[in-house]
Design a protein around this nucleic acid. Sequence first.
DNA 1: CAGCATCCTAACAGATACTG
DNA 2: CAGTATCTGTTAGGATGCTG
Lengths: 133, 133
Amino acid sequence: MDAHIPFSERLRMMQGDQNPNNCPVRQVMQGIFGKWSTLLLLALAERPYRFGELRRLVPDISQRMLTQSLRDLERDGYIYRKVYPTKPPSVEYGLNDLGKSMLVPLHDLVIWASDNFAAVDSSRKIYDAQAAD
Amino acid sequence: MDAHIPFSERLRMMQGDQNPNNCPVRQVMQGIFGKWSTLLLLALAERPYRFGELRRLVPDISQRMLTQSLRDLERDGYIYRKVYPTKPPSVEYGLNDLGKSMLVPLHDLVIWASDNFAAVDSSRKIYDAQAAD
DNA sequence: CAGCATCCTAACAGATACTG
DNA sequence: CAGTATCTGTTAGGATGCTG
């Protein structure tokens, strides 16, 4: 809750104790930063969706990756999975409280990205042009 | 600047126009979410560091990945690279204004992660235990 | 000191076909 | 409808040796 821990302290926390790979903060960040995770969380922020609806919302995701990404998000506790035993079956995905709370800072980062992508893009172009010399 | 664009609108912005892979917001997010990027940005948030210092700060990064990650962050405009023509040479890395501004929302997300990793970890354990049935 | 080049492995991710 | 299974290609990442 204390936002005023200095960066160096946060960094030390991210190193883990003995094995840095065991650092829990890094592991959480990895889960959020997957290729599709952010996109799916944003979609579910609006309302729960069914599997097929999510496929249509994110047309360039493969069925395999959609299943796997949803499983991972469910495993981390960000979303729930609710099966309706109809025929044919329908499955609904939606945000848990943990997911809703995480989405607050994540959304701020997305806002930053959409406000600043032009600066990043122009920086890349300049860098690449100089590298071509 | 407007933080009140609905999620669905943000989502549509993240789809890109024709080719979703070209979506600039996604590309910015990918750059921030690399395995080492966040760690390095947090380190540089405190003060500029030299190459060897960064290696010691993040002991589990390989030389190859440190070089590559720093290049990527430089290319995106988050950090600068300043070479001092001494013998032997020394190279200093530090945050640009763009990096400093990006670090504000990124830091909030790191704070969330360090406040909530216990909940994520316990969710994973429960999920894995049920999957073992 | 701060790297680059090379080789190699493992994780990530797409395409396709099939199922309760 | 909502998946699973399998195969394959691509990229991320580590280990090692060498250099201005």
